[in-house]
Amino acid sequence: MNDEKYILFADPALILASPRDKGALASVTPSTPKALGKLTYSGSVQNSDDAAPISGQAVVTAFDAKRNVTRHYSGYVPNTSQGFYEGDISYTLPGERIFRGLISVNDGSFSGQFTIPKDIRYAGRTGILNVQYWDNAGQSGVAYVDTLSFTGSDSTVSDETGPDIQFFYFGQPLMNGRQILGGDNLTIELSDANGINLTGVAGHGISLAIDEDWTTAVDVTELFEYNIDRADLGQLNVALSNIEKGTHTISVKAWDNYNNPSVSNISLNFTSSSEFRIVDVYNYPNPMDRETTFWFRLTDAADVSLSIYSLGGRKLRKLDLGNLGRGYATQAWDGRDEFGQLLANGVYLVVVEGKTDLTSDPVQTIQKLVIAR
């Protein structure tokens, strides 16, 4: 019997998805970056096939100074003379991530700038700046420097204001009391002139709490991504799939790179994923003159119609919108009835009606509309 013992780490025939080409960081300034200061970089992309210069995107990641880690281990081997054993093992790890953002690569060149957080180690060791780029044609590569020497702090700048925090749902700003579907993505937008603290040092990350219970808050820092070519604005998407039906307060806490905190709360009405609803119905402008646009959101795909009624209940116009997908939808209206006549000034009712394969009866939402010419 073959009693050899081995560990298979990988398939020897597997081709690793490593960057193919090598770029160059031509400039990283200042040469000795300081906390709270700006780090500016630029470089170029090299194509090993000598084809046209690459135009695409790149992920820029910066790490704090390397750190030594020592771990203690112990164990016991039964039925041997060795018995109990213990010891220490030391190794080096990259420092905490201090920046991660997406930038454009144009005709083989790239550049950018970001703020160095206050939470760096000042350890006298060197950090890393890594740029990994790609294009739609399958070209990819990496450029990096591992000699960033962080020293001191920039005392010439001042910032005492935390990040601005905004909530969005399907691309639309959220306000207190709005209804959303449990399990859908809630978009949280963060902005600050000096960037968002992503280090996680001393709790300086992005946290989300439900009903202001910070003892069970979740660290969502890893979900944050800067907008392309921005180091002051980004967002993260959170799916609140396990939240109970009803009204809940969502709280988000974030820090900027100067360690200024901000907390923002929003109260939302969560509905069951099995219930079909037509929500967030409004039109703009309202009052209207000759044209207006209706907005509404469907919690599931449905056959939808939009009707205009007088206050006395007479149907004046019906617009069949067909089968619409889940999410926000819009429909313009020219202020005319079924016969093409402009409606008179006054107050009217707008009825948005939808029917899905899961509902035996149509679901309706009613909104008031004012015509004033």
Rank of each mutant, 00 (worst) to 15 (best):
I196H: 03
V281N: 08
Q166F: 00
L324A: 08
P117F: 01
Y328T: 11
Y91H: 02
N176S: 15
V77N: 13
A52P: 02
V105E: 08
R336V: 13
S74N: 14
D303T: 09
P117A: 00
N194M: 08
I15S: 11
M1N: 14
V157N: 12
R125T: 06
A13I: 08
P117I: 04
R97A: 09
S104C: 02
R277F: 10
A372I: 01
D88K: 06
L16T: 10
K34E: 14
S155M: 10
W134R: 10
I366Q: 10
A35P: 04
F339G: 06
T156G: 06
S207N: 07
F114S: 09
V145I: 13
E160R: 06
W255R: 03
T161C: 11
S155N: 15
D88E: 14
N323R: 15
G138T: 05
F276D: 12
K315I: 12
Y85R: 06
N106Y: 12
T92E: 13
S81W: 08
A254T: 05
S307E: 12
L198C: 01
Y73N: 08
T80S: 10
A254P: 01
S81G: 13
T187S: 15
L268C: 05
V45A: 09
L343Y: 03
V131G: 03
K118C: 03
T199A: 01
T293H: 11
D11W: 01
T199Q: 09
T92R: 00
L186C: 10
L342G: 06
N237C: 04
L174V: 11
A58M: 10
E353Y: 00
N197T: 01
Y73E: 04
W333V: 08
L306D: 02
D64Q: 07
N136K: 08
G23E: 04
S251K: 02
E96D: 14
G23K: 00
L316K: 05
